[in-house]
Design a protein around this nucleic acid. Structure first.
Lengths: 194, 194
DNA sequence: TTTATTATTGACTGGACGATCTATAACGGT
DNA sequence: ACCGTTATAGATCGTCCAGTCAATAATAAA
C-alpha cells in the first residue's frame, strides 16, 4: 500500500556501523553517514530516526554479532583453555586497517562512560553472558586439572574480560598483530596449572 | 614591556584538562572550555593557540604528571610485586566521579586511534619508560624468587601495561572501586611464583 | 483508476561551532 | 609622559551541523 524502500536497510546499517566504529559518535557527521550508506538525508530519518538512534541500532547489531562469535570460539574447542585462547586470538583482526579500528563497544564505553543510560543498557546485554560462559569453561578446566584450581573462577573470568578490552584498546592504539597475539597467549598461560 | 596575563595559565590548563578528560576532544566545545577556565575567548587563542593545541598541551601535562606518579609507586616498595600492585591500585581513584573519568590517555587512544601523528608522538613518550621500569622490577623479582622465573620479563611487563589500560577502561565503564582492586590483585597474583 | 501511504530528493532552517577582528586596557622600558 | 607590546572583552565571521520541509514518485489496496 506504500512505496517500498529502495535501499537495503541492513546493508546501510552495516555501512553506518563501519563509520561510527572507525570515528566514534561525536566526530561522525550525518553527511559522512549518508555518503557511506548511499542514501539521501530524509531516508536516514525515515528508516532509522536520527543520528543517535542509528548509532544505538548499529552498536546493538555489532554487539550481537561479535558476542555470538566470541561465544562460539570459546565453546568450540574441547579444551577450556584452548577455548579461551581462541576467544582472545579471535579479537585480533589480521587486516591492519580492521585491527586498528579496535572494538566499537570499547569505543562506546570510552566515549560515553558510565553515565549514558541507553548505552549502559546495551552493555549489560553483552557482559553477563560472556562472563557466565567464561566461568563455566574455567570451572570445567579446573575439574580436568588444566586450569589452576587455586583461582576463584569468577575472578578469573572477569580477568579474561578485562584482557579482552585491554587487547582491543591496544589494537586501536596500533599494536601489531603478532604483539597482540603474544599478549593473548601470555594471559592464557597465566591461567594454567603449573 | 607588555600587559601581563591576568589569569593563572597552569590553573586554566588544569581546568581545561578536566573538561577534555571527562568528555573527550570532539564533544568538548570551546565555550565549555572558556567557562571552566574562567577566561575570555581571545585569551584562549593568545595563550594556547586553539582548541587542538590546548588539548595536546593538556594531554602532555596529564601524561607527565600521571607517569611520574606511576613510576614512584612502582619503585617505592621494597618488594617488586608490591610495587606493581601499588602501581595498579594507584590507578583506581577512590572518588566515584574521578574514577568514572577513567584515564585521559586511554580516552585519547580510543578517540584518535593510531593514525594521529601528534598523538602517537605523545604516547611514545609515556609507554617505553614505564615498560622499562616494569621490566627492571620484574627481573628483580625473579632474582629474589618472588616473581615466576618461567615468564619472559618483557612479555610480563607488556602484560602489566595492558592490565593498566584494561583497569582504566573498566573504571570509565563504571566499575566499582573494590571490583577494580580485586582485578588488580588478581593480575599481580598471576605473576607470583607458585 | 483512484486513493492512501510511504520513499526519495534537494532545498532549507536555526543554531552551534572554531576562529578572527576591533577597540580598549594595562604594563615595562625609554 | 610616551611608546611598544601584549591582554582582555565583546562583536562578528563563515562554515558546518543535525534535523525539517515541500514537492514528487512509486507502490498496493479498494
Amino acid at each position: 500500500m506504500a512505496r517500498p524502500r529502495e535501499f537495503d536497510r541492513e546493508l546501510a546499517l552495516e555501512r553506518a556501523t563501519d563509520v561510527f566504529w572507525a570515528n566514534g559518535y561525536a566526530s561522525t557527521s550525518t553527511e559522512e553517514l549518508l555518503a557511506a550508506m548511499g542514501i539521501a538525508r530524509q531516508s536516514l530519518y525515515n528508516a532509522f530516526g536520527g543520528k543517535r538512534a542509528l548509532y544505538l541500532e548499529a552498536l546493538e547489531a555489532y554487539q550481537r554479532a561479535t558476542t555470538s562469535g566470541h561465544l562460539q570460539r570459546l565453546k568450540a574447542p574441547a579444551s577450556p583453555l584452548a577455548g579461551i585462547e581462541a576467544l582472545l586470538l579471535g579479537l585480533i583482526a589480521e587486516d591492519d586497517g580492521r585491527r586498528a579500528m579496535g572494538c566499537m563497544g570499547v569505543g562506546a564505553v570510552s566515549e560515553f562512560g558510565a553515565g549514558d543510560a541507553a548505552m549502559a543498557e546495551l552493555r549489560a546485554k553483552v557482559g553477563p553472558p560472556v562472563l557466565a560462559s567464561l566461568v563455566t569453561r574455567l570451572r570445567e578446566g579446573q575439574a580436568t586439572g588444566e586450569v589452576d584450581p587455586a583461582m576463584d573462577a569468577e575472578d578469573a573470568a572477569r580477568f579474561v574480560q578485562m584482557t579482552m578490552t585491554g587487547l582491543q584498546l591496544a589494537a586501536r592504539g596500533g599494536g601489531a598483530a603478532e604483539a597482540l597475539r603474544s599478549l593473548a597467549r601470555f594471559a592464557v598461560d597465566r591461567l594454567k596449572t603449573r
